[in-house]
């Protein structure tokens, strides 16, 4: 194929991506420095950023994002790992269970939210009180764990399948117990996959929206940055501050990715220098 042909092949995708992702992303960044009140749009500099630093609502939302992140590390990633280890053997029954555990991941979060919302509804549902102020965030995390643990299980299963058989065989010959095999052999070999899982879990915790919106969009104790920004834009017509929150959210996502990838590279380098 000619060079020109290649570029022609490349252009449509680039154009769509440019117009509908890159351009508006840049626009968000620009908008965050302007006020959008009324008809005029004056430049306000870093006003909204300075405001965010002291905004108690933003603090609470960000705190909720972080709490949610910690809970999902447990209910999604750790639970997914446990499921993967439990269902590692390739039997018919295990195969069935894997398919079953993954299936909630194909459901719409709106559906999940509506169904659980109904189950937890006070006065009607079978488990009332789960969305009360003290527990709502935990409840949402558990629901999200129910929906996504199977997804992480699948990733970990793929990692476990790559653990070389001869290493396991050698361990067995050495008389290692199942627990020792897991902690000493499998887990270190799963490192690559764990990084990926962390990456998805961290970014997912900041991107979350649907479940929170469907279940409790107006309560402060379940406010997260993404619901806060949507409310700011569509309710209060404050596109400037909404854009600022969007920029902050983007930075948080990119930062967590950078940190995880950085940690991974550091670890690798450390290993190479190590005594081995």
């Amino acid at each position: 194929m000619t060079r020109r042909g290649q570029i022609l092949f490349f252009l449509p995708a680039l154009l769509v991506f440019l117009v509908f992702v890159l351009l508006p992303s840049t626009q968000t960044l620009i908008d965050s420095f302007y006020s959008h009140q009324g008809i005029k749009h004056p430049f306000v500099g870093t006003l909204y950023y300075r405001y965010a630093v002291t905004d108690p609502k933003f603090h609470q939302s960000l705190g909720n994002n972080l709490k949610y992140l910690l809970w999902t590390l447990l209910f999604e990633v750790a639970a997914g790992l446990a499921l993967a280890v439990g269902l590692e053997k390739n039997t018919r029954f295990n195969n069935f269970l894997r398919v079953a555990f993954f299936s909630p991941a194909v459901l719409s979060m709106v559906v999940v939210g509506l169904v659980f919302g109904f189950l937890f509804k006070d006065g009607v549902g079978v488990l009332p009180g789960m969305l009360n102020e003290g527990r709502a965030l935990l409840t949402i995390s558990v629901i999200s764990g129910w929906a996504s643990a199977g997804f992480f299980m699948v990733i970990f299963l793929a990692g476990l399948a790559n653990v070389p058989e001869d290493v396991l065989e050698a361990a067995r010959l050495d008389g290692a117990s199942a627990r020792q095999t897991f902690w000493r052999i499998k887990l270190p070999l799963l490192k690559e996959v764990i990084y990926v899982a962390l990456l998805i879990c961290f970014t997912g915790a900041f991107k979350a929206f649907d479940l929170f919106w469907v279940l409790l969009q107006n309560q402060e104790h379940t406010s997260i940055v993404s619901t806060l920004l949507v409310k700011e834009v569509i309710r209060f017509d404050n596109q400037g501050y909404g854009s600022t929150l969007a920029v902050i959210l983007t930075v948080l996502v990119l930062l967590s990715v950078a940190i995880i990838i950085g940690a991974k590279n550091l670890w690798r380098r450390g290993e190479r220098r190590g005594p081995l």
Partner: peptide, 15 residues
Amino acid sequence: MILPVQSYLIPLTGL
């Protein structure tokens, strides 16, 4: 791929 939808959501309406 990792960019959250919120990054480009707001100006998309106008676009």
